[in-house]
């Protein structure tokens, strides 16, 4: 059976979303997107220069990959809304928008309250809104009520490569939230991404780990494999761990043995 993620009416096969910042060149970024076979890439609107013939990042996004503008640099809901509108007006990417509202340059942690306000406005304006958030159940519910198409809880601070430090909170969101849960930020290794997928996240978004690697395309391919493995494991069903060794059928195995007396 096909296993698609559907957001905003778009069917997505590859559950590895990618960020496009911090690469040594746009050419290397493009190679990484191709290696990941990325279907969704997020681009900071602040970086887009549609007037430039040589430095327009959009020219380097492979065909078929959906461009999700993000509001990086926004400090308030109002700034995020204005950035999203500018993206729309300049034809930057799709009608998707990843909302980032950050009031803290040290940890780059999102401001959930301002994020909610921006979500409420942009959903009404017809955007497919994916808010980047600190994993908080009440806030995730409010975002869903406001019309968010997915929620994007952080695994750990942006660029930290520390992995899914918020896993217990993300697990709660996966259980309770009705829209796709996409872990964004902090994933440093393919195994981090795999772990997110194993617990039932709909997708992950990775940027820094790939972009600052000495072989971005190679690592992008590794992340893709890990995301796929984690997703397959989740669908197959993982068994619970046990403290003790257990033979395959110590007590009831006889029921499956042939009855030689018969």
């Amino acid at each position: 059976m096909d296993d698609y993620l559907v957001i905003g009416g778009k069917k997505i096969k590859n559950r590895l979303f990618m960020g496009t910042g911090k690469f040594a060149s746009y050419a290397m970024m493009k190679d990484a997107l191709i290696a990941a076979e990325a279907e969704v890439a997020t681009v900071a609107v602040r970086r887009v220069d549609t007037a430039s013939k040589t430095d327009n990042i959009l020219e380097y996004i492979p065909q078929g990959c959906l461009v999700m503008p993000n509001t990086s640099g926004a400090r308030t809901a109002d700034e995020a809304v204005r950035i999203a509108r500018l993206a729309k007006a300049s034809g930057t990417g799709s009608n998707w928008v990843k909302i980032e509202v950050i009031q803290d340059t040290k940890y780059l942690l999102p401001d959930n309250l301002e994020t909610l306000k921006a979500t409420e406005v942009l959903v009404k304006e017809g955007f497919v809104v994916l808010p980047y958030m600190s994993p908080d159940l009440s806030m995730a519910r409010r975002l869903v009520d406001a019309g968010a198409a997915a929620v994007m809880p952080l695994g750990s601070p942006i660029g930290s490569n520390r992995g899914v430090k918020t896993i217990e909170l993300v697990r709660i969101l996966v259980k309770e939230i009705t829209v796709p849960v996409i872990v964004d930020a902090g994933l440093g290794r393919p195994s981090d991404a795999c772990k997110c997928m194993e617990i039932g996240c709909a997708a992950v978004l990775v940027n820094t780990a790939i972009s600052i690697s000495s072989d971005p395309a190679g690592l992008a391919g590794a992340f893709k494999g890990a995301v796929n493995a984690g997703r397959r494991a989740y669908r197959a069903g993982l068994v619970s761990p046990s403290d003790q060794a257990r033979a395959s059928s110590p007590l009831t195995g006889f029921l499956r043995e042939k009855n030689e007396d018969a």
């Binding site: 746009y26 602040r46 970086r47 887009v48 430039s52 640099g73 700034e79 950035i83 500018l86």
Partner: peptide, 16 residues
């Protein structure tokens, strides 16, 4: 910068 493996960032903000 390109030869040294850096991306020269020409634009990193916008009037909002």
């Amino acid at each position: 910068l390109e030869k040294k493996g850096y991306q020269p960032v020409m634009k990193d903000w916008l009037h909002i």
